[in-house]
């Protein structure tokens, strides 16, 4: 299951989720947590890939906040 490249750690994802739960009794099963790690990885990779594509479409070799702003609305609609 361990993959190449950087990824979120399970402990981090767990803490991030628990930070926003309203009910303290709410728990996350281990496999669901693993799937959430995957979900967040896809979110960040998709954000990066779309911003890079936007920069390349504008013929730039650096990806700035401006390019990310342009792809942000659709990104948020997809997740």
């Amino acid at each position: 299951m361990e993959e190449d490249g950087p990824n979120f750690r399970k402990e981090l994802v767990n803490k991030l989720l628990f930070l926003h739960f309203k009910d303290d009794r709410c728990k996350v099963s281990a496999d669901a947590l693993q799937l959430m790690v995957e979900m967040l990885k896809i979110f960040v990779r998709e954000a990066a890939a779309r911003a890079i594509r936007q920069a390349q479409a504008e013929d730039q070799d650096k990806v700035d906040i401006e390019q990310f702003e342009k792809v942000l609305p659709q990104l948020l609609l997809d997740f």
């Binding site: 991030l16 967040l40 650096k62 990806v63 997740f79």
Partner: peptide, 23 residues
């Protein structure tokens, strides 16, 4: 290509907020 620092900061801020919706 390369990312500027503000761009990375923006992406991580969005990710952090997205976590709230997810949770």
């Amino acid at each position: 290509v390369r990312f500027t620092k503000p761009a990375i900061a923006a992406i991580s801020e969005v990710t952090f907020r997205q976590c709230e919706h997810f949770a």
